[in-house]
């Protein structure tokens, strides 16, 4: 039985084995390879996607559990013309090196800033503590997220 949901604004219908995680479905069936898989047991955060507005680990979700939801991946938070303000801030602060954890950082930070554009450094660190990065040491990532807050604030 196919599972129907929306990915990055477009409806999809996929037929996969029941045991297929949402992460594997996105990567290997829908070929959205921006979502990365780093541990498959819910620790590293590289596979973070946004489901109905909430950042979640797509390795801890069955594809079937996405039925009827709206899923956003890093590809859905990107465009061809230019980097988004969040992405540009990551670049400016050198908040990525090998790039493997980066999609999960972007999706997580986007979900956070969309809800809490006024969050402070402690909150950013608290939220990002669920995303492992082995290259940067995190200092630059936290700076990048804080610097991107202004882009998420609603005009007064």
């Amino acid at each position: 039985m196919p599972t129907n949901f929306e990915v990055n604004g477009k409806p999809v219908s996929v037929t996969v084995e029941a045991r297929t995680t949402l992460a594997d479905c996105l990567r290997h069936h829908l070929r959205l390879t921006g979502t990365h898989v780093g541990c498959e047991h819910g620790v590293c955060g590289a596979c973070t996607v946004i489901v109905d507005g909430y950042a979640v680990r797509s390795c801890l979700m069955l594809t079937a559990q996405a039925e009827g939801t709206k899923v956003t991946t890093v590809e859905g938070l990107s465009n061809d013309e230019a980097l988004t303000p969040l992405q540009a801030s990551f670049r400016k602060h050198h908040a990525l090196q090998c790039g493997f954890c980066t999609p999960g950082m972007i999706t997580t930070a986007h979900a956070l800033l969309s809800e809490e554009p006024d969050c402070d450094a402690d909150r950013v660190r608290d939220v990002l503590s669920g995303n492992l990065c082995r290259c940067t040491g995190y200092i630059s990532i936290v700076e990048a997220v804080l610097d991107a807050r202004s882009a998420y604030k609603k005009p007064a």
């Binding site: 955060g45 997580t108 956070l112």
Partner: peptide
């Protein structure tokens, strides 16, 4: 309890 993403599910 756990982390941001885990708390969302």
């Amino acid at each position: 309890v756990a982390h941001y993403q885990i708390r969302n599910r």
